[in-house]
């Protein structure tokens, strides 16, 4: 098993931390993992992306330009990464955050109303967990239990009280994701 994922969006959307939680979940499953950010002067409103690889075997290149799965959380990310998804791969986007939908027919595209749902829940911070739940539904690369264990590793202890809420968001995301239409 090897899953090569790019997560891309605006800084402040929780792109890097979503990747980190996924990487920790991979470790919980006994997999090899790598987390390679496009670093730089990223900040709220700037662009941010991270490549996460989970694999049964040692990971060769942590830097890729073809992906099994792309999670795109804004329009520039969709335009940049849709062409780079491998045929038969998976593209996940937040419905509210993009203007034009993906057009490729040789990939599986999914949408999730995470921004709207996070607003409804009056908690912008669970946005990335809703997305993560969506990913786990369509690409079951790690169990929700292992992701929750990963959360305990990834989050500083003072934030551990927020984990049940995050878990609920992950499960809600699993319900929300639908094929792109």
């Amino acid at each position: 098993m090897k899953e090569e994922i790019i997560i891309s969006g605006f800084g402040g959307q929780g792109v890097l931390s979503m990747g980190k939680i996924l990487a920790y979940a991979g470790i919980m499953e006994g997999k090899e993992v790598s987390w390679m950010p496009a670093y730089g002067p990223e900040q709220r409103g700037g662009t941010a992306n991270v490549t996460v690889i989970l694999s049964d075997k040692p990971i060769a290149s942590p830097i890729l330009n073809r992906y099994d799965t792309a999670i795109v959380l804004n329009q520039p990310s969709l335009e940049k990464f849709e062409p780079l998804v491998k045929p038969g791969g998976c593209l996940i986007y937040d419905s509210y955050s993009i203007l034009t939908k993906p057009t490729r027919t040789d990939i599986n595209a999914y949408c999730i109303d995470a921004m709207v749902e996070a607003a409804r829940m009056q908690n912008a911070k669970v946005f990335n967990m809703l997305i993560l739940g969506g990913l786990l539904k369509v690409r079951p690369i790690a169990s929700v239990d292992d992701v929750v264990k990963g959360l305990y590793k990834a989050l500083p202890e003072r934030h551990h009280k927020l984990i049940p809420m995050n878990e609920a968001a992950i499960r809600r995301g699993m319900e929300l994701i639908t094929p792109s239409c």
Partner: peptide, 10 residues
């Protein structure tokens, strides 16, 4: 280099 410095692995 920046890639090895910035990336996370086990």
């Amino acid at each position: 280099d920046g890639a090895i410095g910035q990336m996370m692995e086990k």
